[in-house]
Simulated assay, not measured.
Amino acid sequence: MENRCSLSGEEPENSFFIRICLVLLPVLFLLVGCGQEPTTTERSSTQSSTSESRVIPASSSDTSIPFLTKNITGLNGMVYQLSLPSNWIEEVDPASRNKDFQFMVSDEKQEEFIGCITENKEDFADIEAYTKLATKGLEENTGTKIGFQNERINGKQIQVAEFSAVVDGVKVSYIYHIIETKTAYVQLYGWTYTRLFEESKDRLKTILNSFEET
């Protein structure tokens, strides 16, 4: 299939590939504006709706910041659970960043991000078929060879990939998970500037690995 994804918002005909194409678009909206203070109308603190507080051991550049277990309601009404650093904030209107996002969270400096997209399982043969389609879409958008590996994380089999891409001149690195839940295939991924990736990698992994659909 010809890659017709563009930053101007033009959409390809295939709805699945729309979702894959749009995966990379939030980078420019978020990273280029890095350092701007979020307004109270745009962002909400993770501390306002945490269900439980606990410290998660993780190797990162700032181990003094505790992780909080937070319930997040996606735009589809489903409730998801993540362990997030206490200074991370939730995007109030994730669809304004990417119309397919169920939710999005970031650190207060807006240098590290987690986004979530879901697809109905009934539309795909199995997770292997879904992962192949996701891989094809990502490779067409990035021009980068991407290989997902099947890993067992917290008792679940998850498709995992790490890769870097240049999006409109911006160097970005990703950790990408494809997760099967009871009703959906979930694309959950973290990203940051490539120059910050080694510093951010363990923290992003800790957050991604904590994902649960409640």
Rank of each mutant, 00 (worst) to 15 (best):
4 R>F: 09
5 C>Y: 05
6 S>L: 11
7 L>K: 14
7 L>F: 15
7 L>Y: 13
8 S>T: 14
8 S>Y: 15
8 S>H: 15
8 S>M: 15
9 G>D: 13
10 E>G: 15
11 E>A: 09
11 E>G: 04
11 E>F: 06
12 P>M: 02
13 E>W: 07
13 E>C: 09
14 N>I: 08
14 N>Q: 12
14 N>H: 12
14 N>W: 13
14 N>R: 11
15 S>I: 10
15 S>T: 09
17 F>M: 09
17 F>Y: 11
17 F>A: 03
18 I>C: 01
18 I>D: 03
19 R>G: 13
19 R>K: 15
19 R>L: 09
19 R>D: 07
19 R>A: 12
20 I>W: 05
21 C>V: 01
21 C>N: 01
22 L>S: 08
22 L>Q: 12
22 L>V: 10
22 L>D: 14
23 V>I: 14
23 V>C: 10
23 V>T: 14
24 L>G: 04
24 L>T: 03
24 L>V: 06
24 L>D: 04
24 L>C: 01
25 L>V: 04
25 L>S: 04
25 L>T: 06
25 L>P: 03
26 P>M: 02
26 P>H: 00
26 P>T: 02
27 V>H: 03
27 V>M: 02
27 V>A: 04
28 L>Q: 08
28 L>S: 07
29 F>Q: 10
29 F>S: 09
30 L>N: 06
32 V>Y: 12
32 V>R: 13
33 G>M: 05
34 C>D: 14
35 G>R: 03
35 G>N: 03
36 Q>P: 01
37 E>R: 08
37 E>V: 15
39 T>L: 14
39 T>W: 05
40 T>V: 13
41 T>C: 07
41 T>H: 07
42 E>D: 06
43 R>G: 11
44 S>Y: 08
45 S>N: 07
45 S>R: 06
46 T>R: 04
46 T>S: 04
46 T>H: 00
47 Q>P: 01
47 Q>Y: 05
47 Q>I: 07
48 S>M: 06
48 S>L: 08
49 S>C: 07
49 S>D: 06
50 T>K: 04
50 T>R: 02
51 S>T: 06
52 E>D: 11
52 E>G: 11
52 E>F: 15
53 S>Q: 05
55 V>H: 00
55 V>W: 02
56 I>C: 04
56 I>G: 01
57 P>Q: 00
58 A>R: 04
60 S>L: 01
60 S>N: 05
61 S>I: 06
62 D>Y: 03
62 D>H: 03
63 T>F: 08
63 T>Q: 12
64 S>L: 09
65 I>R: 03
65 I>P: 01
67 F>L: 14
67 F>I: 15
68 L>Q: 09
68 L>V: 08
68 L>T: 05
69 T>V: 13
69 T>D: 13
70 K>N: 11
71 N>P: 12
71 N>T: 11
72 I>H: 13
73 T>P: 02
73 T>C: 03
74 G>M: 07
75 L>S: 10
75 L>M: 08
76 N>S: 12
77 G>A: 02
77 G>Y: 02
77 G>R: 03
78 M>A: 10
78 M>K: 11
79 V>R: 03
